[in-house]
Every structure is written in C-alpha cells, then in structure tokens.
Design a protein around this nucleic acid. Structure first.
Lengths: 207, 207
DNA sequence: TTTGGTTACTTAACACTGTTAAGTATATTT
DNA sequence: AAATATACTTAACAGTGTTAAGTAACCAAA
C-alpha cells in the first residue's frame, strides 16, 4: 500500500502547512489577523481547501493553543534540578508570569479565548489534558511542600486553584490592559513578582 | 435658545435609545450579537445613524462596560453596615465572585474584552476611573485591616493587586471554560468560595 | 417670501469575515 | 476505455464594521 501511504503523508504535510501558516500569522500579526483567506494565501491554496483538513477555524485555534502549551513546557525546562519544593513552586510561578507577560498572544489563546475550548467540546475525548496536566504539576509540588512541612496544610485542590487563579488573574489583567492605567507599564512585571512573593510568603511556615 | 435646547435633548434621547438597544441585545443575546445593524433595526434608524452618535462600536462597548460597573456598585450596597474591615473584605470578595459568576457577560466587558479599553484610550481623559475606584475601595479596607492589626502588614498596593488578581483569575478561568473540565460546573462557585476563604485565612492574624 | 446653508438622516458601497454547495479536473480502479 | 473516487476551485451566501456621497427637512438672513 505504498500509494496510500504516500497520500497519507501528503495529507499530513498539507495539514502541517496550514498550521505553520496559522502560526506565522498568529505570532506576526496576532489572533485577529489569523483568517482562513490569509492562511490559504500563504499556502497557495484556495480558502475552501483549508476546510478539507480542519473542521473549522476553532479547530485551528485549538492547535495554536496546543503549540502554546508546548512552548510553555519548554520554558519550564529550567525547573529540572530544583528539588526544594518551595523553590520549585516559586520558580513555577515566576515562569508562569514571565510566559504570560512576554507571550501575551499565546497566553490569550491558551487561557482566555473561547475558540480552543469550543473546538475541544466538539471532540470525541473532550478532556483538557494540557491544562489538567499543568494544574497536576502544581498540585504535586504543593503536596510535596505540605508533606515536608514547608507550607500550612490545606486541601491541595483548593490551594492549587487559588494560586493558579492569582497568577492567571495578574497576567490576564495585565495583557487586557486593566493594570496599565494603575501601574506604569514598565513596573507591571515587578508588581506581579511582588504579588507572587507576598502570596508565597503568606503561606510559608517559616516566613 | 429654546430650539437649540430641544435639539440637544433630542440628541441625547437618541443616544439613550442606542445604548438601551445595545444593552438589550447584550443581555439577551450576548457580546457577539451586539451589531451596529441590529442596534439600528431596534431603534428603527439606518446603521449609519449610529455613527452620528458614537465614534465606533468600541465606544458603545465602553458604555456597556460602564453600565456593568453600575450594576456591580448596586450589588455592593449590601456592604453598608459592615464595619468590621475583615468581614467587609470577605463580603467584598464574595460579591466579586458572585457578580462575575452570575453576570458573565457584564464581567466580560468590564474586565476581559479589549474593546472598552481601546475606546478609553481614544478619549481625552484616558483614565480608567471605574476600575481605579473599585481598587481604591479594596485598598481602603485593607489599610483598615492592617491598622487594626487584623491582617499582617504589607504594602497595600501589592496586597490589593494580589487579592484582585486572585478573584479575577478565578472568575475569568470559570467563565472562559478553563475550570469546567476540572471541576463539575455546579461545584465551581463553591470552589471559588473556598479559595477566597483560604486566602483570607492565610493572611488573617488570628486565623 | 424666497434664497442659501446647516442639520439629520439614508442609500449604496467597500473591504472584509467564516462557511458551504456545486462544479472541475486529475488520478485510480474496474 | 469507462466509471469512480480524490483533491481542489469557483462562486456564492450571509453576515461584519465603516465611510463617501446624496437627499430631504428645517432655519436664518436677504
């Protein structure tokens, strides 16, 4: 079945071309400028061809959302070697704030835009594994902190959601321009850092 | 100048009609369904007439955003009489979570959508007084808590942004469907409440 | 009272958007 | 060689925000 294989390969190649083009538009021009027609122009096919490879635009955004998570995971490589769970927790928070503030478009599609979640809802296994795994990592490190008596004991799910809530809140307020009027733009990253410090200090047993 | 006055009055009347129509569409059909043509249909004028009263669509969303703040202020009437600053702080958080979760469309335009802020940026006094005042109230109550030795001392701006960040983070994760896969929908409000409890307990001196 | 100009509004269009029905070649199979 | 399946395109639908140009109605001065 060499012919069938070659055809399959071609199909995934065009799929890749579409995603690459979407990505290019996304990082260079932003979310709003990713349009089916522009994607089609870039890959030199007609707009309708895109629909032969993806159900709709939301499905493309779902893949951009996945690529965002991949980038975030890359950044988190700097966690290896940090064995102290409290240090690790701190670095995780720092990474999150850094990523969100410096890659606002990716952050947007990962945690704010509705499109990727709508695509997910239309899928067979509608499970948000990426977000789920990320939260799982946070819960692990928190459990570790509690086990070693570094932070006050509390239900991990609650603490995890609270901390995630805070860092997400800070990033999303920042990138949707709700802080720029209150905090000079150059200070925002500093303020977010201070917030993280304050929170982790508040729960530190030896704080 | 009776004529001029009457004309002015008519002008503000049509402005009000436009905003009322926008509001109706907004609450009944949601953000995406507020279109210039639908507004025009409702007030029985042509679409272009809308542009004689508002610069663009963003400016209309800015007013919807303002109306959202007005509703939120109404809800906060239940704060009068709560003199204990820690109780007050708790109730403020509870109100915020309640409002966000039960009026997701308003919350969206107040704290997530870019449109109102873009309109604000194009205005003479580009100051976000509504958000500013709201944060001011939070800072006041926090200062009060610190003065009375109810919570650990820390820079109020930092603590205020942190708490706002957390409640905003929880609400926006919830209404943009990032929690629905992790937490059963009926439990989300409970989890948010628990997060708030956890945070305020963590900073409570007598906790 | 007639002319001229302002004001309020509309028509028609531009340049887009996501999406789909129907048509056309090309390639594969019978 | 004829029939079928594959891959792609053309043309269109139904919408979007926005603007240039045109039209009636009203108001003030000649």
């Amino acid at each position: 079945m060499g012919i069938v294989e070659r055809k399959e390969k071609q199909k995934t190649e065009i799929r890749k071309m579409i995603l690459d083009a979407s990505m290019k538009l996304f990082v260079e021009e932003g979310y709003d400028h990713v349009t089916i027609r522009k994607i089609a122009d870039l890959i030199e096919y007609s707009p309708t061809t895109v629909y032969l490879y993806f159900k709709d635009k939301d499905e493309i955004f779902f893949h951009l959302h996945e690529m965002g998570f991949a980038r975030f995971m890359e950044l988190n490589q700097n966690l290896v070697g940090i064995t102290n769970p409290l240090m690790r927790l701190y670095k995780m928070g720092e990474n999150y704030l850094y990523f969100g503030f410096n890659h606002p478009e990716f952050y947007d599609v990962m945690f704010i835009q509705r499109a990727p979640m709508q695509a997910l809802a239309c899928m067979e296994d509608g499970h948000w594994s990426l977000g789920d795994n990320a939260l799982g990592l946070l819960q692990e490190v928190l459990q570790d902190c509690m086990d070693k008596g570094l932070i006050k004991k509390a239900p991990v799910e609650v603490v995890a959601v609270s901390i995630w809530g805070m860092v997400h809140g800070l990033v999303s307020l920042a990138i949707r321009d709700r802080l720029t009027k209150l905090v000079p733009k150059d200070d925002i990253q500093k303020v977010m850092q201070q917030s993280l410090n304050w929170l982790l200090n508040s729960i530190d047993k030896n704080g």
